[in-house]
Design a protein around this nucleic acid. Structure first.
Length: 575
DNA sequence: TTTAGGG
DNA sequence: CCCTAAA
């Protein structure tokens, strides 16, 4: 059986020793590691842990070594646990004896260290600790243990043969600071005078618990350090002057080198105190679809700092949110956008930082976030239908539903509608306007206005006047679900513009006629103009029209006379 | 909810 | 057609 040490990546033993020990008694190669705590707090934490009754048995033998092992990956821990690694030079059997018995206890001990403890944190602490460990390949002399002051900011791990005559028992001394050695020569001298047994006894009195570690050096170091910690606590964590090598250390200031020690010791303290260090909470930026929620949250909270994407405009969204298209995944587009970033028709995306008004979202309370609709699940349009006018959300949902039922008609079921027979003729000559424009499925319908519809609109305006779009809709477009009062208004405005354009530039109109864009009969346009005179659209609109109209009238006498003539006709017209 | 008006 | 402010 190989020694556990051999598998340890750090070469705890010199090759010589390793060979020696494996030659002799491979299974009895033992190592002991001692930890010198750099602060009293840490030492107390360990002491308290050791004082736990259930751990009392293993404390004496496994404690220090487990401390090291715990800093290692689990595999190492297992290996360490498997090998009864801590043996005193005085009693190697004790460990073996206790091991089988204390196996469970030790596991519990190790579990306890990590129990309720964030694994990451633990490993981080251990990593930090390990990073600071510097192993010495050379076998230090006895003097090194006592004199060596490696305050280079690193833990100095010294491997030492505690007793060359009992070479099968290694003692690894893990020093966190040199404070113990150089400064307290007095104490050290005292301890040196003691016999090992005496030291053991003193140690037990000092620390209040039993230990089977009978290595003299180990005992001395621990006791000296204990004394030092006492001193250190009195000085409020300022290191003893002597402990800080040559440079004088004044007051509370801790030299950088020793800050490292504190770091290390903190790692230990946190482990032994079962305390979790406060961890930095990272706010991860999530998918774009949820980003708006984050944004609103942040604005609500006011303090949360988020990593906003640099680019949050239409193009990025269009690229990255393809899957988020409301028509594809049932996510209402309205919830993805806040403010128009580009004009025109078609899909629009919104700049960051804009507000979403409740109006834009309809009645429902989808202020932020998105509507997740399970695929394949149709949505009840009626729930959000408003009086023949489909809300935007409803339209998006309709588009979604129409995707599901591909064969379904574009019109709504119309079961709620009263009469449809009246304008069958007008619906015949609808032309789908945007079919050539790509997939603008989120638009309402893209149906060009037919001539009959325009006539109906003119009729309605002549009857109700301009502005009573709801009435006109109710009277003349009752069955036309796709024509909302707003649509009528818009169409009227367009008609008005068209009529003015015609006066303004005959060439432009002709060109448009060539392209088939305008198929509105002249008579209709003239009639529109008449009505515009009778029913002023609005002051703003008039001011916009009037200059052109006056211009047209001045340049074109015929149209002017025509206008007056039409005015006359208007009075006689009965629709 | 409807209308006006900007886009 | 869409969107929003205002009524």
């Amino acid at each position: 059986m190989q020694t556990s040490m051999d598998s340890f990546q750090y070469n705890w033993k010199t090759p010589n020793e390793s060979a020696k020990s494996s030659q002799r008694e491979p299974e009895q190669v033992v190592s002991a590691a001692s930890i010198y705590f750099a602060s009293e707090e840490e030492a107390i934490g360990v002491e308290q842990l050791f004082a736990e009754p259930e751990y009392g048995d293993i404390v004496d033998t496994l404690l220090d070594f487990n401390t090291c092992a715990f800093s290692l990956p689990e595999s190492y821990i297992k290996e360490f646990s498997a090998s009864e690694s801590v043996v005193t030079n005085s009693d190697c059997d004790a460990v073996q004896r206790g091991l089988s018995e204390e196996d469970k206890t030790r596991e519990k001990f190790l579990d306890g260290l990590s129990n309720g403890y964030d694994e990451n944190h633990c490993s981080i602490s251990c990593e930090d600790y390990l990073l600071d460990i510097v192993l010495e390949e050379e076998t230090p002399t006895l003097d090194d243990v006592t004199r060596d002051v490696s305050c280079i900011g690193n833990v100095h791990l010294e491997k030492k043969l505690a007793d060359s005559e009992q070479g099968n028992c290694d003692v690894h001394v893990l020093k966190l600071s040199d404070a113990s050695t150089s400064s307290d020569h007095d104490a050290l001298d005292k301890f040196e005078d003691m016999s090992t047994d005496k030291l053991l006894e003193v140690f037990r009195k000092m620390f209040g618990h039993q230990t089977s570690v009978a290595d003299k050096q180990w005992l001395e170091s621990h006791m000296i350090f204990g004394l030092e910690n006492q001193e250190m606590s009195d000085k409020n964590y300022s290191f003893p002057k002597s402990s800080l090598d040559s440079s004088e250390n004044q007051g509370v200031k801790v030299p950088p080198a020793c800050q490292n020690l504190l770091t290390v010791s903190t790692a230990f303290a946190s482990i032994f105190n079962f305390r979790t260090k406060p961890r930095v909470q990272h706010v991860k930026r999530r998918e774009h679809i949820q980003w708006n929620s984050f944004k609103c949250l942040s604005s609500a909270a006011g303090e949360i700092q988020l990593d906003f994407p640099d680019k949050w405009d239409s193009k990025e969204l269009a690229k990255e949110n393809v899957k988020c298209d409301g028509t594809k995944l049932g996510i209402s587009e309205q919830n993805l956008k806040c403010k128009p970033s580009r004009g025109g028709f078609g899909r629009r995306y919104y700049h960051r930082g804009a507000k979403v008004s409740s109006q834009g979202l309809g009645k429902r309370n989808f202020q932020v976030g998105c509507i997740q609709i399970p695929p394949g699940l149709p949505i009840e349009e009626r729930l959000i239908r408003r009086e023949g006018h489909l809300s935007k959300d409803c339209r998006a949902i309709r588009a979604y539903n129409s995707n599901i039922h591909s064969a379904e008609a574009q019109d709504d079921p119309s079961g709620t509608l009263s009469d449809q027979s009246s304008d069958n003729s007008s619906e015949d000559d609808w032309t789908i306007g945007s079919e050539t424009r790509g997939t603008n499925q989120d638009r309402k319908h893209n149906k060009y206005w037919s001539t009959t519809e325009v006539l109906k609109l003119v009729e309605g305006v002549s009857k109700y006047g301009v502005g009573r779009w709801s009435d006109i809709k109710r009277m003349f477009f009752q069955s036309s679900v796709h024509r909302s009062p707003a649509d009528l208004k818009d169409k009227w405005r367009n008609l008005l513009r068209a009529s003015c354009r015609r006066l303004q530039s005959r060439r432009g109109v002709d060109a448009k006629k060539k392209h088939g864009v305008s198929r509105i009969p002249h008579e209709v346009l003239n009639r529109v103009r008449e009505l515009a005179v009778i029913y002023p659209y609005s002051r703003k609109h008039r001011t916009r029209i009037s200059p052109t109209a006056s211009l047209a009238s001045s340049s074109n006498v015929e149209s002017d006379s025509q206008l007056s003539m039409n005015e006359q006709n208007t009075l006689n017209l009965t629709y």
